[in-house]
Amino acid sequence: MKKKDNITAYLFLMPVTVLFLIFSVIPIIYSLYLSFIMWNGFSINKKFVGFNNYVLLFSNNEFYHSFIITIVYTVLVTTLSIIIGMILAYLLNKNIRFRSLYRTMYFIPVITATAAAGVIWKYMFDSSQGIINKFLNFIHLPAVPWLSHPIWVIISISLVGVWKRIGFNMVIYISALQSISPLYYEACEIDGATKGQKFRYITVPLLKPTTLLLVIMSFIDSFQIFDQVYVMTNGGPMGASDVLGLYLYREGFKVGHLGYGSAIGWVIFAFIFAATLIQLKINRKGEEVY
């Protein structure tokens, strides 16, 4: 029974392993190496600088700025899209009219490419021609400088992120809801619980594993935002939407600081890694308390 199938196994694994080595392992090692040198990409001058790229990075205000913006975006998108997604899933899990039509409409943004969505939203947010400001104007509210104000711009970009994520979260929640046994609710009904109470004390806790999964997925995804900012604002105004991805793109590909750019990549990795661990840990603690 314990017979080994080494040859067969490695034959199956061969193609993926080759790709893995060439397009994953080598770049990762190369990237680590790059982050310790100063190099502009074409000159023969490669200087080993130790941790200097990281030191430069952590003493650069632009980096902190980008970092904070990226976190704000990530937190906003994760929180809002999960709350709205959960509520929608709850409402759309019931047997109501037009259920599948609603689901479709909420889901369409998920399959829309971010770059194309960015182009549309850029026009939606246009300060004087955009439909949003026209509407605000119509109900006698002042126009909002969606993409031209340093604080509003983060909110605007996040709204697009939320818009794109709601449908995904909703669908995952719906399938999680369907796996909740109706017995729980029946038990509750016997105790005379209201609908709100049922949602609060049964649905939400039972969805916890799904929520954790969605939080981690959304966090990892949102932290790497690039497309929509590239298309919508290119980092402006005043660098207010200059997220880390854009910062890396500029340093690594436009200015040609390959070492510095790689260092940004590793910091992004370190942060995502740490954040995921912390989320898992918090979750575990929460479970112990229960």
């Binding site: 300060s127 004087s128 021609q129 400088p145 031209s148 104000h149 340093p150 402006g236 105004p237 005043m238």
Partner: peptide, 13 residues
Amino acid sequence: APVGSWDDFAKGK
């Protein structure tokens, strides 16, 4: 004059 926006002239604004 506005700050942070551009193209208001073309929009007649």
